[in-house]
Computed example of a mutant assay.
Amino acid sequence: MRLLHTSDWHLGRAFHRVSMLDAQAAFVDHLEATVRAHAVDAVLVAGDVYDRAVPSLAAVELFDDALHRLAALGVPTVMISGNHDSARRLGVGAGLLGRAGIHLRTSPGGCATPVVLSDAHGRVAFYGLPYLEPSLVKDEFAVDRPSHEAVLGAAMKRVRADLAQRPPGTRSVVLAHAFVTGGQASDSERDITVGGVAAVPAGIFDGVDYVALGHLHGSQTLSERVRYAGSPLAYSFSEATHRKSMWLVDLAADGAIHAERIESPVPRPLARIRGHLDDLLADPALARHEPAWVEATLTDPVRPADPMARLTERFPGTLSLLFEPERPPGERDVSYARRLAGRDDQQIAEDFVAHVRGVGPDAEERIVLRDAFDSVRAHDAVREVVR
């Protein structure tokens, strides 16, 4: 059976305030074309369909379009909710959609109720484990401690129990939305840490033929049978080096796995550049980044004038501007408390200006700071008298 594993669509999400809806629509086009071109037998969507629990109307319309197109292909789709989704909202109409071949699994109680499909070699049971928030599902799974490992372990125990009762030779696929040990995170994923622990061991999924993971945005192979599809689009500059793709997985009669990556369309490349502003504007080696979306980190000792305006003249797609001014050796090793020791309010304020701008305030700015502090002190003195 040929599976197409994808996840983390995040419909409705923007990239540094730039709408991604057109790029997300292009991905839906690509998804449909891939299903047709590669004779896919089932599509797997491992959570975070939407970016918000209450998505925008435009995001809902795009999702509706995707569902209609997948249903029209006649290829079954198994989809779970992620930590960004509202499981209740995403699961509305699941029974009716199931009749059209769109199988939504958003309820923790349905973890051990698989979607069973067949091919020439027999049956394949697809178990959908939506994102399981430990504090909300601990009673459902009767765990002593509300942790990711405990609730996922309990869910997988139910999966194995159901699988053991099925006819011999039944192959199995699990969809899950979780942070599994060994996966590489980016800046785009929402923190799901509970009690200081977010990751669960990959061994928790032992006993099934393939595990289609969602949550982490980089396409990753944790083992031959445990993989992250990653997001089809980049949602932060930390994903600049990612190859956005889906997994095309062939599940053999004996449960053997063969997987290959299907590249996703890239609406615009990402680039992270760093250095003095004048160098960035003059370096011919950076010409390849001129059409890209750019994150620029300036290291000038003194913050240059109008840096964003000057950058966008050469790099019109500059969306993020950071400052990390070069400091004298050893300065960064001095703690904040030590820098403030023995300084009055005026000196602390002047130090802050120097830290942010790279150069301290001039004489007129010092007067402005002093007058501000004097005004605050006078106001506080009046309040004390009134009391």
Rank of each mutant, 00 (worst) to 15 (best):
187 D>L: 03
187 D>H: 13
188 S>R: 12
191 D>P: 06
192 I>C: 06
192 I>M: 14
192 I>L: 13
194 V>C: 05
194 V>A: 05
195 G>T: 11
196 G>W: 12
196 G>P: 07
197 V>W: 07
201 P>I: 07
202 A>P: 00
203 G>Y: 02
203 G>F: 04
204 I>M: 11
205 F>P: 09
206 D>T: 02
207 G>C: 08
208 V>Q: 13
208 V>T: 12
208 V>D: 04
209 D>W: 15
209 D>G: 15
211 V>C: 08
212 A>H: 04
214 G>A: 09
215 H>S: 14
215 H>V: 13
216 L>T: 05
217 H>N: 09
217 H>A: 10
218 G>R: 15
218 G>I: 02
219 S>R: 11
219 S>P: 13
222 L>H: 06
222 L>K: 13
223 S>M: 13
224 E>T: 13
225 R>T: 13
226 V>W: 02
227 R>Q: 06
228 Y>L: 02
228 Y>G: 00
228 Y>K: 01
228 Y>N: 01
231 S>H: 04
233 L>H: 03
233 L>V: 06
234 A>F: 04
235 Y>S: 05
235 Y>A: 11
235 Y>R: 08
235 Y>P: 12
236 S>W: 03
239 E>R: 08
241 T>H: 09
241 T>I: 09
242 H>A: 05
242 H>K: 05
243 R>P: 02
243 R>Y: 01
244 K>T: 04
245 S>C: 12
245 S>W: 00
245 S>T: 00
245 S>I: 00
247 W>D: 02
248 L>C: 01
251 L>N: 01
252 A>E: 15
252 A>L: 09
253 A>H: 08
257 I>E: 06
258 H>M: 08
258 H>T: 13
261 R>P: 01
262 I>K: 00
263 E>F: 05
265 P>D: 10
266 V>T: 11
266 V>F: 03
267 P>T: 06
269 P>D: 11
269 P>K: 06
269 P>A: 10
270 L>C: 13
271 A>K: 04
272 R>C: 14
275 G>F: 07
275 G>S: 14
276 H>Q: 07
276 H>G: 01
276 H>P: 00
277 L>F: 02
277 L>K: 03
277 L>P: 04
277 L>W: 01
278 D>M: 06
280 L>T: 04
281 L>E: 04
283 D>I: 08
283 D>K: 03
283 D>Y: 08
284 P>S: 03
284 P>D: 11
284 P>E: 07
285 A>T: 15
287 A>C: 14
